[in-house]
Nucleic acid binder design. Structure first.
Lengths: 399, 399
DNA sequence: ACAGCTCGGGTAATCGATTACACGCGACCA
DNA sequence: TGGTCGCGTGTAATCGATTACCCGAGCTGT
């Protein structure tokens, strides 16, 4: 493979000149053409490894996600990649497989490869390696999953309003024995979702006792199934279940199906994360949709702020309830999707619970851990149209 | 961040010694301990950029996939990553978004970063960049999607037997007006699936006329929906549709649903690629499952052969039909999944069509492009158990 | 006791780029 | 006409590792 020296010789100049031409540090026309000709003839491409060594910049960002086979993360990664590419960075995706140890391996590898910054959707509770990385000054931004006691900006969705809507939904449909399947104990995300759900139910006089709170060990279908089994074996089984992750919901559905039960007749089911298949399940699933692509975009911007040395704040974007038929009537799923694009975008979205005194008002700052960690929406992108993202399936040009 | 010089000073030795100790080129105990102590105290980690520059090896493999939001690719990537990691390589995933141009961008970036080898699931027809890469001698292996006229090993699934089973299935159920939704014209995968399906139907006297062959422009749900609309607007609409990709199937289901039609009553639907949600759709979908994880593993091994300079052969692993209820009776979906793990593994799998003279016999080599491109299964891994992979959902330890 | 061999470890070249510094040449001004 | 300024370009240091080569000390054999 040709290197800069070959180009220099061929063009009859020094390597310095070649470098300068290629980096636009020398806008001279004379030698410039000779150099460019030589580059073209040799098919020369600069060696990014050498460049990175010299400049101490790789032009790559790292993204650690919990699970590559989880459609939520996959969409997140897709959005992050798009944004990173459009800003001239390439993205290295690391898959933790929900294992903190594997996550640590990846963090180390990425740091060793001198990525310019790191986005982490942390598996488990934050590991020591993660804390060291933050302490070492590596530009770091948390994505989707906050980590207690880690003073680093975090970009994630705020589910409070959506959970309030859900509580209203349950109340309106007479579901009074809800249950929740949450992420492993100790994770901030699981704890938050549980707490907000409980708080949202209270105004309706609906209880969420501990026996109807099931933590999975693994954030996988198996775990969801196991928890659902426990619920169904209860003397008084729940009449509505919220699975706080789509994979756990999958396992829960397996168990429901295996017992010959029907949704929503025997049990209502609601899922966190909205994936395209939920419209086609039996029945179509009511879901809490996170603004996945916006989260990805915001995370990249936040990380770039850090990389460029500016202070960056946390970002919190609202999630929303997408009612379908898995909680029972009345949600008639209005004559399904006739227009081609952007059909789902018109799904009923309520910004505040319609008929109830929901506690979404004043004291927004509920956690004391991170000072800047409130409603601050630092979303900087100027895209005013929110449509095409919450849309049916993310479409891609080429047609 | 500490470098090798700092370590050398602290240990009172030269950088050469440090390097030797760290690379095991010097099994001496005396200085060794001092060096290791210094490494530990400083928290030193070798700079892989510098190392890569010197050794001309990065220890990274590249994987280009068609679409990150496609669960088939996602599972493939997951498998490739697992295998690469277990062999000491890290993986850089590039998402082409089914755009050949974006794919070319990625290829170039990866080559510039001097990855040790490249796995490509090519979007569109093979691009010039891809051909140049192969010609330049970069270790290259194609994955899932073959590219005509590119003399490079390819690891993919053989759908012939599964399609033969499907033809038998259709014949047995009296479906005599099949249709097929295929990938964009020009792609080898689309052409193959179409041809094999047609050939498989012939023995039953079932025709597959061109009007019931729909190519999507984009391999996305939108395209699938558009094609399905065309089919349903036909004077004689099909009574069975095979979507050769899960995303296109999703779009097809959108259209079916929008028209208020029912599967399988009004139309049978079969999907290429088996994703976990297909068991929960309405109705559960009959699918053609590819041995995704095995493909990923085999691809990594094949690539390593190339990297180490050995010749490598193409790999062809059989796909299989997983009958569910989307073609009508009789496939009663035997009392769904009672045992917890590995339930789907027991689904009826027929290696050869049960009751018909299917043309799967002698002339296996149907394409003349690549000499070594036959049934050769070069799968080298010694894992004898095939179980846990074709299983319900891929489970991951941690519990 | 001395030649020769082994072996640990230091010196310095090297990978392929970027970039500070210096130099030469032409132009401009006094 | 001579000095200075500026511009374009070359020389060489540098990034952080690996590794060929060489040197010196200690051990062995005769």
């Amino acid at each position: 493979m040709a290197n800069i020296k070959d180009v220099a010789e061929r063009a009859g100049v020094s390597v310095a000149t070649v470098s300068r031409v290629l980096n636009g540090h020398s806008p001279v026309a004379a030698t410039r053409d000779r150099v460019l000709a030589a580059v073209a003839e040799l098919g020369y491409r600069p060696n990014s490894v050498a460049r990175a060594l010299r400049t101490a910049r790789t032009g790559a960002l790292g993204l650690l996600i919990g699970d590559l086979t989880n459609p939520f993360f996959t969409e997140l990664a897709d959005a992050v990649e798009d944004e990173a590419r459009s800003l001239g960075y390439s993205l290295v995706i690391g898959n933790a497989g929900e294992s903190p140890q594997q996550q640590d391996d990846h963090i180390r590898t990425l740091i060793d490869r001198r990525i310019d910054g790191l986005l982490v959707s942390s598996a488990g509770t934050g590991s020591p390696v993660l804390r060291e990385t933050a302490a070492a000054g590596t530009p770091l931004v948390l994505l989707d999953r906050a980590v207690d006691g880690l003073d680093v900006p975090c970009v994630r969705a705020d589910g409070r309003a959506a959970l309030a809507d859900l509580a209203a939904h349950f109340a309106a449909l007479g579901r009074r024995r809800p249950a929740i399947i949450v992420a492993p104990a100790g994770t901030r995300t699981g704890a938050d979702r549980l707490r907000f759900f409980r708080e949202a139910l209270r105004p309706y006089g609906i209880e969420l006792p501990d026996e109807r709170v099931g933590a999975t060990p693994d954030l996988q279908p198996t775990g969801g199934r196991r928890v659902m089994r426990g619920f169904l074996d209860l003397p008084e089984p729940p009449d509505a279940v919220l699975a706080t992750d789509n994979l756990m919901a999958l396992g829960a559905m397996d168990e429901i199906r295996a017992r010959g039960l029907r949704v929503p007749d025997d049990l209502a089911l609601v899922v966190y994360d909205d994936v395209p298949w939920f419209r086609h399940t039996d029945p179509p699933l009511t879901a809490i949709a996170q603004p996945t692509r916006e989260l990805g975009r915001a995370a990249v911007h936040t990380l770039l702020e850090r990389i460029e040395g500016r202070p960056a704040e946390s970002v919190l974007l609202p999630a929303r309830l997408v009612p379908r038929r898995s909680c029972g009537e009345p949600v008639p799923e209005h004559a399904p999707h006739t227009p081609e694009p952007a059909d789902e975008a018109r799904a009923p979205v309520r910004e505040h619970a319609p008929h109830a005194p929901v506690p979404t008002d004043a004291p927004r700052t509920t956690d004391g851990s991170n000072g800047s960690d409130t409603d601050t929406n630092t979303n900087t992108n100027t895209n005013s149209d929110t449509e095409s993202d919450t849309d049916t399936h993310n479409e891609r040009g080429s047609a």
